[in-house]
Amino acid sequence: MTDWLTTPQGRRIALNRTDGQGPTVIFLGGFRSDMEGTKALHLEAWARAQGRAFVRFDYSGHGVSEGAFEDGSIGDWRDDAAAVLDSVAGPAVLVGSSMGGWISLLLARDRAADVAGLVTIAAAPDFTEDGYWAGFSDAERAALAEAGLVLVPSAYGDPYPITRRLIEEGRNTMVLRTPLSLPMPARFLQGTADEDVDLTTAYRLMEHATGPDLRLTVVKGADHRFSDDDCLALIVRSVEEVLARAGAAA
Rank of each mutant, 00 (worst) to 15 (best):
I26W: 02
F27L: 05
L28Y: 03
L28C: 12
G29M: 00
G30E: 01
F31V: 02
F31L: 13
F31N: 12
R32M: 11
R32T: 15
S33Y: 02
S33W: 08
S33L: 02
S33E: 02
D34R: 00
D34C: 05
D34F: 03
D34E: 06
D34H: 09
M35G: 02
M35K: 15
M35D: 06
M35P: 03
M35W: 03
M35L: 13
M35F: 02
G37S: 05
G37N: 11
G37L: 00
T38H: 05
T38E: 13
A40T: 08
A40S: 13
A40V: 01
L41F: 00
L41A: 01
L41Q: 10
H42Y: 12
L43N: 06
L43T: 07
L43V: 09
E44T: 09
A45H: 12
W46V: 13
W46A: 06
A47W: 13
A47G: 04
R48V: 14
A49V: 00
A49E: 13
A49L: 00
G51F: 12
G51N: 14
G51I: 01
G51E: 14
R52Y: 07
R52H: 10
R52N: 10
R52G: 10
A53F: 00
A53G: 15
A53C: 03
F54T: 09
F54K: 01
V55W: 03
V55H: 07
V55S: 07
V55Q: 09
R56E: 13
R56V: 12
F57L: 09
F57G: 11
D58F: 05
D58G: 03
D58Y: 08
Y59F: 14
Y59E: 14
S60P: 15
S60A: 15
S60V: 05
S60W: 07
G61F: 04
H62G: 11
H62I: 02
H62E: 12
G63M: 04
G63N: 09
V64Q: 14
